[in-house]
């Protein structure tokens, strides 16, 4: 049944996936096994996204399925679920003045299913909040998102503030957004630009030594 669940999730058969998960739990299967199936399926979804077969619709639906299954399982989990060591920690947010969240959310989701610990600060995040989060979380990577052209300067200001706080050398900074590119990254003072969520995962992995 576990393999069926994996393929139902990976192939976007939403109703079937949720039924299978419920059946597994009703039949007394280990709730952790159900969660593991979800994780396994997400690897397939991630690969298909990377290959250009899946796009946002599939990530959204996969995310919804994962959440629904998580909600089913949560009350049944006795002890803490077995945690795998994350590949690294990431602080993520859309910079001040900009309230666009979709791109950031997709990047957060892809990082999450790629086993990164993601600290999403939301949208319209001022530099102080990034600094505070970096001090608290001690991430390897900071991701700045922005859709508007005001983000060019706002990202630059944010990185400047991180520098002034003496934290610039402790993190790698990546930027993303429809209008960003390598020359924007240079202007902004980021370490790299990623054109999509796959690129963000690759950058994060390359910086944290993950495979």
């Amino acid at each position: 049944m576990k393999e069926q669940l994996v393929s139902a999730i990976a192939d976007m058969r939403e109703e079937e996936a949720l039924q299978l998960a419920q059946q597994m739990l009703d039949a007394g299967e280990d709730p952790q096994a159900v969660l593991d199936a979800g994780k396994e399926a997400m690897t397939v979804v991630g690969d298909r996204y990377e290959d250009g077969e899946y796009f946002l619709p599939e990530l959204i639906i996969a995310g919804d399925m994962l959440k629904a299954i998580g909600d089913m399982v949560k009350p049944m989990l006795q002890a803490q679920a077995s945690q795998t060591e994350p590949l690294g920690k990431i602080v993520l947010g859309t910079v001040a003045g900009d309230i666009h969240d979709l791109g950031k959310d997709v990047v957060g989701f892809m990082l999450d299913i790629s086993n990164f610990e993601v600290h999403d600060l939301g949208v319209d995040v001022p530099p102080e909040k990034f600094i505070q989060a970096i001090q608290e979380v001690n991430p390897e990577v900071v991701g700045l998102s922005g859709f508007l052209t005001l983000a060019f300067d706002q990202m630059r200001v944010t990185i400047e503030a991180i520098k002034e706080a003496g934290l610039r050398d402790s993190v790698k900074i990546m930027i993303g957004g429809a209008i960003m590119d390598d020359s924007a990254a240079q202007y902004i003072g980021a370490d790299a630009y990623g054109p999509d969520a796959t690129a963000a995962v690759k950058l994060a992995k390359s910086w944290t030594g993950g495979k």
């Binding site: 052209t149 060019f152 300067d153 209008i179 590119d181 020359s183 924007a184 202007y187």
Partner: peptide, 8 residues
Amino acid sequence: VPNVMLLS
């Protein structure tokens, strides 16, 4: 024309 070029 790239907006970042027009800006910077």
